[in-house]
Design a protein around this nucleic acid. Structure first.
Length: 217
DNA sequence: CGAATGATCGGCT
DNA sequence: GCCGATCATTCGA
């Protein structure tokens, strides 16, 4: 069962430095849909297919933690060059995993909002305290963090180092623009006009995306 | 040092 | 649909 799953895990090509360095964080947020997020911590390897993302555009985006170039102990991670993890605690409960993108010093980040469980669902279920695989396993950013085993100690980790325990793979899957649904971001109503930007992307017809309602589609 | 707050979730009504 | 959980981070005194 667990062993069988291990045998069936197919490896893909890791995304490279140049992918994460692109300036357009919204474009990268779209491209991340259909990629595979892998964690390989002590408890075991788990893999999820990314089906929902949200872009946060550096200093000018009022919804971003780095709005106005705010630089603190927590947000300093966002200023690293693209290809790092930014993990933070939300509402005291949820470990939120973000991908840092853009050049060194530019605090762009992409929140991974939902994944489709692909590999080692046994461990993912155990981490969640769940018995059977349901969309709730990986739908919603808090659930992504929990099922894949993220915590804030991983913030600032590289996704590119050969020894990294976290990385993203391209498994040669083509996702067409038509399959993407863009909508406004969730939980950022305080951000004024920026809250209306259609920077949340999800895979059409996927049962694995989060149900959280925005202000409209 | 103390107090308010949040890029959410799940359970209950 | 509403409400409580639960704590690091942040800001002000």
């Amino acid at each position: 069962m667990i062993l069988k799953e291990t045998e069936n895990d197919q490896a893909g090509k890791r995304l490279t430095w140049s992918f994460y360095q692109q300036d357009d964080v919204v474009e990268i947020a779209k491209e991340l849909i259909g990629k595979y997020l892998v964690t390989d911590f002590a408890a075991g390897k788990t893999v999820g297919r990314i089906v929902e993302t949200e872009a946060y555009q550096g200093p000018e985006d009022q919804a971003s933690h780095a709005f106005g170039n705010r630089y603190t102990e927590r947000t300093k991670t966002m200023y690293l060059p693209g290809g790092h993890a930014y993990v933070y605690l939300c509402y005291g409960i949820h470990q939120m995993f973000n991908v840092v993108t853009g050049k060194d010093g530019v605090p762009h980040a992409i929140l991974i909002r939902a994944i489709e469980p692909v590999f080692n669902t046994v461990l993912m279920l155990d981490r969640r305290g769940m018995k059977s695989v349901k969309p709730a396993l990986g739908a919603g950013p808090g659930n992504v963090g929990k099922s894949l085993g993220f915590n804030t100690e991983h913030s600032g980790n590289s996704l590119l180092e050969p020894t990294s325990q976290i990385w993203i793979e391209d498994r040669e899957e083509i996702i067409h623009q038509k399959q993407l649904i863009a909508s406004n971001r969730v939980g950022v109503a305080y951000a004024g006009e920026w809250a209306l930007r259609p920077w949340r992307f999800r895979l059409k017809d996927s049962p694995w995306t989060s149900k959280a309602k925005g202000l409209g589609e």
